[in-house]
């Protein structure tokens, strides 16, 4: 087995382990709660009988490890349990919304990743130029804006003052792709603005770091022109850092999604999660959290594997 395959398998195993650990943390969070969750959720006025019945429904009368295994078994077969508030099956609640959230996040990522990487590289190459300074101030401001601030500004400008795009991102049954892209334009733009700024700054930093390497100077001293320096000497070594930057910024994307969905009343997973937190519907929150965290870990894992697979020093061993 080649070392690189072994390394990738190692990462996969590590990723699996962190998935298990994260599921454990999400499960345990409830256990660590001081006091009785059933009492907490039902309130002080609940009778002991209802509390006991509720406990039994939650399975709280069983030992924690058994419940964890049971819960995890359910999760693996797509059974996330039932909502405390409505009694509905969580799996079916999540599936549809999850698709919508993925669509929105994917929409934003498809625009912001190429945009951020391009702008980041340009800012790094023209370091300390006017362009770089403007971009620096703009991105610093942009990451300082709360997501909902950006969202409402966009609504005010593009939905109220000049009514071009809808401020409520809901689409009926079977919308066309164009229709979906149109109706989710504002939330996607909000995410793009926030995420691009973060991602761009990090891309810039990693490219600057790269351009300071002696082999870049060597290329210049061999008479290699600026374009070729970047394409042939910098880029092959920049892949791994850029992939990592993209992965790191997924966290901002997820945070952004939760808030943007609320602002635009978009029926995604984030909206469901926020509603459930307010209702203290713990099982639903757990489910949403698990799905988000799972995706996050998997994408990070993918980035990890990709950066191993593009590292020349690992690809060609001694």
């Amino acid at each position: 087995m080649s070392p690189i395959v072994r390394m990738i398998l190692g990462r996969l195993a590590l990723g699996l382990l962190s998935l298990v650990l994260v599921s454990l943390v999400i499960f345990m969070a409830v256990e660590l709660l001081p006091g009785d969750i059933a009492q907490e959720v039902l309130g002080q006025s609940a009778t002991p009988e209802t509390v006991a019945a509720f406990r039994a429904e939650l399975g709280l009368d069983q030992a924690a490890p058994i419940r964890y295994v049971h819960w995890l078994g359910g999760v693996l077969t797509g059974d996330l349990g039932n909502s405390l508030a409505t009694g509905r099956d969580i799996g079916s609640m999540i599936v549809d919304r999850f698709g919508k959230t993925l669509f929105l996040a994917g929409y934003a990522a498809a625009i912001s990743v190429p945009l951020a990487v391009t702008l980041g590289i340009l800012a790094a190459l023209y370091r300390n130029s006017i362009f770089d300074r403007i971009v620096n101030v703009a991105t610093l401001s942009s990451i300082s804006f709360p997501e909902y601030f950006v969202a409402y500004i966009l609504i005010l400008l593009l939905s109220i003052n000049t009514p071009v795009f809808p401020s409520i991102a809901d689409f009926g049954r079977d919308p066309s792709l164009g229709d979906m892209l149109y109706r989710t334009f504002l939330p996607a733009m909000t995410l793009v603005l926030v995420v691009t700024a973060h991602m761009m700054r990090m891309t810039r930093a990693s490219i600057i770091n790269l351009m300071a390497q002696p082999y870049i100077e060597m290329a210049r001293l061999k008479g290699v022109g600026p374009a070729r320096v970047i394409l042939r000497h910098a880029l092959p070594n920049a892949l791994a850092p850029i992939i990592n930057v993209v992965a790191l910024n997924l966290a901002y994307l997820i945070t952004g999604v939760v808030i943007v969905e609320v602002v635009f009343v978009y029926p995604g997973l984030g909206q469901l999660m926020v509603d459930s937190v307010a209702k203290r519907d713990i099982t639903v929150v757990q489910g949403c959290c698990l799905v988000f965290a799972g995706i996050y870990i998997l994408l990070n894992l993918l980035a990890d594997v990709l950066s191993i697979a593009t590292n020349p020093q690992l690809l060609h061993r001694k």
Partner: peptide
């Protein structure tokens, strides 16, 4: 490994 805001929502 869990984005902070999600974790915060869970704990809240």
């Amino acid at each position: 490994a869990i984005p902070a805001i999600l974790f915060a929502l869970l704990l809240l």
